[in-house]
Design a protein around this nucleic acid. Sequence first.
RNA 1: GCCGGCGUAGCUCAGUGGCAGAGCGAGGGUCUCAUAAUCCCUAGGCCGUGGGUUCGAUUCCCCCCGCCGGCACCA
Length: 658
Amino acid sequence: MPGKPKFYLTTPIYYTNGLPHIGHTYTTVVADTIRRYKRMRGYEVVMTTGTDEHGVNVERAAKKAGIPESEFVAKMAAEWRALWEELGLGADEFVRTTDLPHVRTVQWLFRLCRENGYVYKGNYTGQYCIYDNAFVNDAKPGDNCPDCGRPTETITEENYFFKLSAFQRPLLDFYKKNPDFIQPESRRNEIVSFVEGGLKDLSITRTTIRWGIPVPGEEPHVFYVWFDALTAYLSAVGGPEFEKRGMWPADLHLVGKDIIRFHTVYWPAFLMAAMLPVPKQVWAHGWFLMDATKMSKSKGNVVLPRPIANMLGMDALRYFLLREVVFGQDGNFSYDALVTRYNSDLANGLGNLASRTAALIEKNFGGKIPKATECKPQDEALAKEVQAAIGEVLENYENLSFARALEAIWGVVASADKYLTTEQPWALGNSEKDQARKATVLWNAAELLRIVTVLAHPVLPASTAKVWTLLGLPGSVASVELDGLQWGQPAPGKQLGPAQPLFPRVDKNEAIERIEAMANEELNPAPPAKPAVSATPAGAAAAPQTAPEKIGIDDFAKVEMRVGQIKTAERIVGADKLLKLTVDIGTEIRQICAGIAQYYDPEKLIGRKVAVVVNLAPRKLRGVESNGMIIAAAVGPEGRPVLAGFPDEDVEVGARLK
RNA sequence: GCCGGCGUAGCUCAGUGGCAGAGCGAGGGUCUCAUAAUCCCUAGGCCGUGGGUUCGAUUCCCCCCGCCGGCACCA
């Protein structure tokens, strides 16, 4: 017996540095929609999600909470899993990176890479961003992380390296042979040019971190978080015994655009090194922006899924996320747009159509779907339109063009409204001819509604199930096979189920207020009685800035800062951010580079007195020697530099700051 | 600085070498089966600016302006 075709897809293994927000929800909604769609197309589908639980962040958060790491992450994982279940997004496999089978898979993958000669031991010194769990290439001590803007830390350690450099050619060949591997295409081009620019070997173990998967026989080495987390996709479906289950290689990794490189460069390289099959496709979607800026905790514009689901229903959120933007691009999120879509598309559109159709059948035929006995040109036109829409919708689902698929479905909904308005079944009398016409029109309306229900089911699982029941149809809508879907299948005579409100219309302002109030409550829970337990995951997430380590006066005395006066300033060709300055520090005139070109005009700086670190080792930036450092505050999320200065009182050039 | 994308009706966006489109919002009208829903009509928009190719460009090419993304870079 030939088995069903298989389809394996994943969301990222989310890092547990807070609770899921709309961004995580978006990825998972997409994954869930694809899963439902593929099942309706006859596939055996496995969808994996999970929690990434290792690393310095977790170590610190647990310490802060005063509980062991294992306890901390268990709590986190439980919360994530529970929320996904609550939202109807529970995956088939939920991997925790602390699960034993996963630990074994990571160790096994490492062994394979090593046996094949792609692992060696070396020393690494670099700047590390503990929040992003990544070394920042070429960053200097004191630099901020280019991604998140937080300070980096200098880390030197002996560790194992992965010969990523050996995979430049194989990866480029692979991208060429599999042009659809990276989607959308714009991302693919970016990655190709990144890889063409050369790949450096990658450090994949750490000795400075305790909370991680141990490298067998090489303690205290633990695995680098990405080597660990990416492997979860494989451990979810069998790990070393992946062949038994037959789900690997994955058909689709869904990721946010911020982590595409890990999935399209590192991950396939690891697998190639281990001689394992490489996933078939990685899809990078965009972000939902709030007022066109990236959502972030520090800006206080985090959108949570639960309040929306409570107010409008999870289907409404799913619909909005998939309908509002072209998949792959960034989009704007606003409660206003959400509620507007809800009222116009769901309440006035689909909800109202279901309601009026059911009411007409109820009143005219006692709730029994009548039999169509005629086929006028307008009836045939309607059927043809629906038939065409079926093809269009399926094609768009297949390409993950959710917005277009939904657009096509809603085009059919509009046609149904128009059809009913034109045919006016309520105005027909009781003559035999009128009865036949009435029956035909209502049968057509019901049939259209059935097809719409099937087509919309992957996106609106809960509400389409309600319509299915309303139409008195057998089985569940989820079990309908999309490949056989066509106009004219159901037998008449079905008794309608009880009418249910699908999408009750809401007052926009009131709805927004209620959602915001619920979100507020979730983000800022009333302080618990005992502060000792306040360091819950949510609390840890809300405090991304860890207190810096304390230093003694002696340490501070090592830094020699003096008042300097800028003598000349010019831009450096080929560098957006750098200015070349000459600065009088009393004893001499120094050349210093400063990354402030985007915010300060060179001409206006001349004569200005600034604070300068004068005993910093010289280094070259963009080929220009820099002999010291100008002190500036980093303001706002983008770290805009604001020069430290002495505006109120005049100071002597060369005076020491202490 | 290098590479790429974008700039079309109030908003979100489609689109094609030859009379400029959709959805939403707004205004007017209509029906009453329906969730004050539906349906019909209404936006006269220099299709970013300036050139070029062409019988003809919003659509092809070049410059410029603005916005965005990737890389580099940010002591």
